[in-house]
Amino acid sequence: MSGTHDVPGGVPGGAPGGVPGDPHGGRDRPGHRAALALGDDALVLAQRLGEWAGHAPELEEDVALANIALDLLGQARTLLSLVDDEDKLAYLREEREFRNVQLVEQPNGDFAQTIIRQLYFSVYQELLYGQLAGCRPEDATPVAALAAKAVKETAYHRDHAEQWTLRLGDGTEESHRRAQRTVDGLWRYTGELFQPIEGLDIDWDNLRATWTTSVRAVLEQATLRVPEGSQGAVWAAGGGRQGVHTEPFGRLLAELQYLHRSHPEASW
């Protein structure tokens, strides 16, 4: 990320519409809270997927996961720039200030875990962006404009995750076993996806129903068992939107922020 802002009529690097002297740079306005939540989802998942570069099972997957990460990073930059300086937000916030769902910070694990995490998240993001993009262009908020743009990219991410879910679930005994293990293991993080975000005009019940139908169809076709019970009923994971994160998130942030904190303003 570079800090060269070019905002006609705006304050370079500043918070658009931010209140002078506001220590949070306008982050507490509802529209900004929404941009921060969606921007953090994209940023954290981009960082996770970037960890695969050079380690994926085959070259095409190295390229695919890096491309998906790049799309997400682009979304994150646009969304976070709506709130404040993107570099400041990415590199200088503490763990409790991030508003991403806990699903995206979960470790890559084996390839199956990455793919199932991708399935759960990309189906959600495509539906969410699709609803946001549904308004008339002249009514579009900046977040809706980004959603209308990014929903087409997300469709490719979802397709990628679906194809791999089918191959892993309906593949060998070992790939099926591992896919099922992570389908069950990550299920508890999916309830949080449907926690309403202030500032977004979304039918959350409809989003949850559509998500469940879509994910169920893919899992069943992949011969995987759909976990029973509502998401998070036994042990309700979630709280990421309120700044509560799981243990692996701290290590992810350390890697993400280390260079910038050690060498402030470092650039290529």
Binding site: H5, G9, T78, S81, A140, P142
Partner: peptide, 10 residues
């Protein structure tokens, strides 16, 4: 990053 605030071409 090159960004705009209104996201519509003024």
């Amino acid at each position: 990053m090159v960004t705009d605030t209104p996201l519509v071409p003024d």
